[in-house]
Design a protein around this nucleic acid. Structure first.
Lengths: 338, 338
DNA sequence: CTGCGTTACTGGCACGTGTTACCCACGGGC
DNA sequence: GCCCGTGGGTAACACGTGCCAGTAACGCAG
């Protein structure tokens, strides 16, 4: 084949042969096993420093990179962790969360990748068959079918765990603490009748209800009536209509997030009315609003770190809850809108 | 162990044995090869419908899932495509791009995952060793070192390709068309002296210069002087200062994106001045600004589809450029700020 | 009967790695 | 002499898959 070109030259020219540990072994004049021991720091092996250096230098010289699929096949464990993100609009908040999580996981030798899930159901299954990740984290609880698929794919850790998904979505998984804090702030300012305004994007309804519930809890604790809940599209006219439609207007309004809050402010500006409004997420645009938007910010980096830590525990077999997740460093950023 | 339970029961109980094609073969009473032929629709094999069904049903009954690492090891090709995203703030724009790209790739049997790269350099290398993706796409050109690493890891396609990265970053890779269109719009409104305002976030400087250059080109084409370029932090006071500092104020201002534009509007409000401002990206907050922000929107879905298509071509060995990438459906959304 | 092509299927190698069990030489205790 | 232990290293299996080469059965022409 190839016209009989001899040995190494042919190999170099020919179709992209991968450099394997065999090549390193040959280069170092040792066996593949020894190479493996050195490169993995396998415990319980006595290897003189001279040999170790020989291997290391041979590997460096050849530019050897271990081949993950083979490694995974043999060892049974993958170094990949998958975050399944929902397709609702992601702000810098989420980016920070993912980034910190990735950092923590990297510390444990794991690599984090993300995938936005758009709701086409086949693609989740393909995800974990194609990736064979060691662990998966999702922002929403997985369905029974999805769980079954992961089990078949032998994915070790999955969060949120089944016990947690027994609870209500918004409350366990994602920060009903935000809604609670929004309400507490407004209550602290002396308001007694609150409204909670949600966006009409169906993808956000679960989270929205979670936050609204948090606010309801805060009201209940303060002996106040539950907030009026309204749902609006991201549109100033519609927001105005909603506000004008309140026959007995609330004293202040919590918005699901800053964008909803901005829509409300725009709507009220249109009407010539003005109610205190508090948003959530502290997007950059919040501080340029008229009036500058008071909002609830969260330390999502910390949250990401906790998620990562929980995953690591789960990978070690300790079946750990995502402890105190909802309360990771949320705080009010006070500006002028409330 | 386990008390001496015999055979299958023990297997079920014991440590999570993976279901392999051997199991399917046994269940169907056929050889593993036949199973493989059926499940992969291997061409050039004649398999009677009865046998095919026997295999399919056995597989379904056992819940068989092929194991990606083994498959990849054997076939040499992975089904994973990696998008390396920069860590600058990502809006819905980018989400849409990624989503559409994922869709297109899924059509070709590929799975797209993303990873935000934060600049810690070791983690990119770990990424492709851990994932062994078939292709990689990055928003910025890769360095020579990164390229070498990918080559060693036998990654087939990498975009942007080396020829392209020879050019200037902002211009080739990312939409200097936006800056161009911003300027053209303002010029069309009769403005002759423009300013281009960039954010001070260093992560954005390459893109910012690209867009500013696009605007400069448009001015040159219209026989106008190049725009004044200013860099501001995302802060109303700082924006005000910059605007006030212009001894000969421009007739209108292009902002790098909507957030910068909002900062400018806030700054000018503070000063009591007012200049026409055009943003970019059309974030939700843009339409709630005072005044509602005129901005440049892009069909990033289309862009994502093109990127995916280019990757697919590259994977097929056709070394294709990312053709006409910069001009994918960008348009002005006219509101009141300009 | 042999020869030949087609259909339906199977045995077994290869992919690159981690790891266990084994081997050899050497030194020292009896 | 023999045996044992130990440092230094290797042969060889297993992981689960894709696919080539081969084979047995069968029909059919000669």
């Amino acid at each position: 084949m190839d016209g009989g070109g001899e040995g190494r030259v042919a190999d170099q020219k020919k179709g992209k042969r991968r450099i394997t540990s065999v090549d390193v072994a040959r280069e170092a004049g040792l066996s593949r096993a020894t190479v493996s021991f050195v490169l993995n720091d396998t415990p319980g092996q006595s290897i003189p420093e001279a040999t170790r250096q020989r291997v290391l230098q041979a590997a460096a010289r050849l530019g050897y990179t271990p081949y993950a699929p083979a490694r995974t096949l043999r060892s049974g464990r993958s170094d990949v962790v998958l975050f399944v993100l929902p397709d609702w609009p992601q702000g810098p908040t989420m980016a920070e969360l993912v980034d910190r999580a990735a950092q923590v996981l990297a510390g444990a030798g794991l690599t984090l990748v993300t995938h936005v899930h758009t709701g086409r159901d086949d693609d989740l299954a393909r995800l974990w068959t194609a990736l064979a990740p060691a662990a998966v984290f999702g922002m929403r609880p997985f369905t029974a079918g999805e769980r079954a698929g992961m089990k078949r794919a032998n994915i070790a850790a999955v969060l949120p765990s089944p016990e947690q998904s027994g609870h209500d979505v918004g409350s366990t998984l994602w920060l009903n603490g935000v809604g609670r804090l929004q309400a507490q702030y407004l209550i602290g300012k002396g308001h007694t009748r609150l409204a909670y305004v949600l966006p009409d994007d169906p993808r956000l309804s679960a989270l929205g209800q979670g936050r609204a519930e948090g606010a309801a809890q805060a009201c209940a604790e303060a002996g106040l009536p539950v907030p009026i809940v309204a749902t609006i599209p991201l549109d100033a006219a519609a927001a105005a209509e909603t506000v004008a439609g309140w026959r007995r207007p609330p004293g202040a309004v919590c918005a699901y997030n800053d964008e909803v809050a901005l829509a409300l402010l725009a709507g009220m500006r249109k009407l010539g009315t003005s109610l205190p409004v508090i948003g959530a997420d502290d997007i950059p645009a919040a501080r340029f609003a008229v009036p500058p938007l008071t909002t609830v910010a969260q330390d999502s980096g910390e949250l990401g770190a906790r998620i990562a830590a929980a995953l690591l525990r789960a990978l070690n077999g300790e079946p750990s809850q995502l402890d105190v997740l909802p309360d990771a460093g949320i705080r009010v950023v006070e500006r002028e809108s409330a």
